[in-house]
Amino acid sequence: MINIQFPPPDFKITSTNGQELIFDPFRKKYVVLTPEEWVRQNFLNYLVKKMDYPGALMSIEKEMNLGELRKRCDIVVYTREAEPWMIVECKEMGISLNSAVLEQIVRYHMALPVPYLVITNGSHTWCCKMNTEEGKWEFEPSLPGYPDIREEPTVREL
């Protein structure tokens, strides 16, 4: 399990027609403040403010097709080359991060292959990395730093 110390929240929260709404700076709109949304906004805040992930390279509730079904990933992080790099599945704090949650995100990986999968409920966070040599997922002790994939061009001999 990875210990996450969320930065102090600085969210814009309002109430409309008896519903609490939170401003999502990534989607640039107010959304209903559900327990899962609270976890998602705190985790996004952590990725940007503590881990220096570029907010412009994140997609929230990214739609995808799993066979006949349309599903949404909570968070997809992309590389600077616009390649999917990490999928994050958020659950509300009372939800256990069990094998069903892990199976859910692995199914997302089938439609959107990435090297990292993260599940979090705000209290507990797990990260898995695909071991391509062995073809299996391995739990990581921490979240990876954001990749800087700007490699120097190689010189080819003629």
Rank of each mutant, 00 (worst) to 15 (best):
E81K: 09
L117A: 02
C73T: 07
V76H: 01
D74W: 01
P115K: 07
K91S: 10
Q104I: 03
M86A: 06
E103S: 09
Q104S: 07
N65R: 15
S59D: 13
G67D: 05
V77Y: 01
K91V: 06
V39W: 01
E92P: 04
L102G: 01
P115S: 13
K62E: 13
V101D: 08
S96G: 09
K71H: 14
L57I: 06
P84L: 03
E37N: 07
I119K: 01
V77K: 00
E61I: 03
M58N: 04
E36L: 03
Y116E: 05
E83R: 15
I119M: 07
V76N: 00
K91R: 08
L44F: 04
L69W: 10
L102M: 14
P84H: 06
M64N: 09
K62H: 12
L33C: 05
V118Y: 00
P84C: 06
N65Y: 13
E103A: 12
F43R: 05
R70H: 11
E81I: 13
L112T: 10
C73Q: 03
M51F: 05
C90F: 02
A100S: 14
E37W: 00
L66H: 15
K50G: 09
V88R: 00
T79P: 02
W38A: 14
L112H: 03
V101E: 12
G94L: 06
T79K: 04
P35E: 11
I119D: 02
P84V: 06
I95S: 05
T34L: 06
C73D: 04
P84R: 03
L44Y: 00
K91E: 09
M86E: 05
C90T: 03
E92A: 14
I95L: 10
M51D: 08
Y78K: 01
I60V: 14
L112A: 08
A82H: 09
E37Y: 01
L69I: 14
E37V: 02
I119C: 04
I87G: 00
E81L: 12
F43S: 04
S59T: 11
L33E: 04
L47S: 07
L117F: 01
A100L: 15
E92F: 04
R107Q: 14
W38P: 02
S59W: 01
M51H: 08
A82I: 14
I75D: 03
E83Y: 09
V76E: 00
L112C: 14
A111G: 09
I75T: 00
T79H: 03
C90R: 00
K49W: 07
E103H: 13
A56N: 11
A100G: 10
I60Q: 06
G55Q: 08
R70Q: 13
P84F: 03
I87L: 06
I75S: 02
A82Y: 14
I75H: 02
S99E: 15
P54V: 08
K50R: 13
I95V: 11
